[in-house]
Simulated scan of single mutants.
Amino acid sequence: MKINHLTSAEENLMMLFWKLDSFYLKDIMEKHPEPKPHQNTVSTYLKILVEKGFLSTEKEGRIFKYTTLIPQEDYKEFLLKELSHKFFNNSGKEILDFLLNIKMISQDDLKEYFKLKWELRPLKIKEPTLEYAEAILNPKKKKKNKEKKKKKKS
């Protein structure tokens, strides 16, 4: 699924929509923080977001029920990849260096992150041998010996 760019206003509305997941226009008007936009403005953005593939609609009587189609995590990933491509040579290391330089991430944060990752790794468990299963699935061929004995008797 191709993800399109959103304007700042569209992103702000999508933040609310992702929290609601499935909603009606009246739900948006109730949940939107002050200053509330005009209902026609929200309605216009809903149509745009449907066209961009971020929302789907289902008609229920005279009103529409909207559902988010693109999860917030997918949009975050899209934005981060775009940022990485445009400014960081598609390098996660360059992004990390930048975040460390502007002090958005500290070395202590990284140490704590990797400490958690190391502690949560499961131990490697030796796989059990399947001697009985092998014996059942691949029985030793004894037919040749029986055939040889029959030929000798004849």
Rank of each mutant, 00 (worst) to 15 (best):
N40T: 11
T67A: 06
E73C: 01
K103I: 01
H85Y: 10
P35G: 11
E131F: 07
K152V: 13
E60T: 07
K142G: 10
E60S: 08
E11L: 14
R121F: 08
K149N: 13
I3R: 01
V50S: 01
K81L: 12
K140E: 13
W18A: 02
Y45W: 02
I136A: 09
L120G: 09
Y75C: 02
K126Q: 12
L99F: 05
F87I: 05
Q72P: 00
F78R: 03
S43P: 00
K47D: 10
L110A: 04
K146W: 06
S84A: 15
E77Y: 03
E10P: 03
Y66F: 09
M15F: 11
D74V: 03
F87V: 02
K65H: 06
K151N: 13
E82T: 15
K153N: 13
L99T: 04
A133N: 08
K149S: 14
Q107Y: 14
N89E: 15
K47R: 13
K142P: 00
E82S: 15
E127P: 05
Y132H: 06
F64Q: 07
P71N: 11
H38A: 15
D74H: 15
F54D: 00
I136F: 10
K93P: 00
L16C: 11
I3F: 05
S84Y: 03
E11K: 15
G61E: 04
K86L: 12
M15V: 09
L110D: 06
Y66P: 01
T41H: 09
A133C: 08
F17Y: 09
K126A: 10
K115S: 14
L20Y: 02
Q39G: 00
I95Q: 09
F114V: 11
P33T: 06
I48S: 14
S91I: 07
N101Y: 08
M1C: 08
I95T: 01
A133E: 15
N89C: 06
D109Y: 02
E82I: 07
S106L: 02
G61Y: 01
K142H: 09
Y66V: 01
L69P: 00
N89A: 11
E30P: 00
L6C: 05
D21F: 02
L6S: 06
K152Q: 15
K86D: 09
T67E: 10
L20K: 14
K142R: 13
I125S: 04
Y66L: 00
K117C: 07
K81S: 06
L20N: 01
K143W: 10
